[in-house]
Design a binder for these strands. Sequence first.
DNA 1: CCAGACGTTGTT
DNA 2: GTCTGG
DNA 3: CCAGACGTTGTT
DNA 4: GTCTGG
Length: 237
Amino acid sequence: MCGRFTLAAADHDLDGVFGHYSWPERRLRYNIAPTQQVLILKGNSSEPAWVRWGLVPRWARDTSGAARMINARSETVLEKPAFRDLMSRSRCLVIADGFYEWQLLPDGKKEPLYFQLPGGVPFGFAGLWDTWHDPTGQIVETCTILTRAAPPWLGAIHNRCPVIVDRSAHKRWLDTAQKIDMASADWIEPLTEFGLPYARVGFRVNSVANDDSACREVHTKKEPGMVENHPRQGELF
DNA sequence: CCAGACGTTGTT
DNA sequence: GTCTGG
DNA sequence: CCAGACGTTGTT
DNA sequence: GTCTGG
């Protein structure tokens, strides 16, 4: 799944992937957490937008459920009332250049692992966004990131992973007039399926208070396929 | 008809 | 808002 | 996602 | 254990 990610790429590198936009002034982020502002591209807008991560549907009474709506399962997103309409109205790309997944170790600790595309080039998570009016009438825009079952190369680490839209399908994902076949993989970044480079980065990232380049400093570099299983006691063989 | 839910992940 | 359960 | 809190009453 | 905050 996806519960933390990074966006520290330069504007120039965002241009290279998403096309030229007027990127807002922004802080480099190494530990973006749910409920925080994230940078997205909407299909109907020529400007990137900041929205809160954690979907608040337009009909919600309050924002209390938002922290549990940071992800939407791609397998069911077309059926769920909270997401279904957004799939045909409000798709977006959530801009990132890496993400963290936690692997449960035998001693019960959770070790963060950092995943990127080769070269650390930026990418867009498949996202949905919505608009909510708070009791005073203020508009709050929020978003969620789609997830999918982890492909085999990732399975030993985690059973879910975020959906990264293939660069060639950015236009299609953002254009809600075009149908997306959720059962097809032709719009998904192929390395999601075949393997991303990743690294051990240490436990500092676990605390959201830490948000600096040390969070993703590589301790041990890994290649896809080098996934180490950590069976729990009693589950050896 | 009205009332109440509407979501994901992980773990067992 | 829209669907489900009673 | 992980980390950290998790409660009431009355009195100042 | 479960909820909230970031």
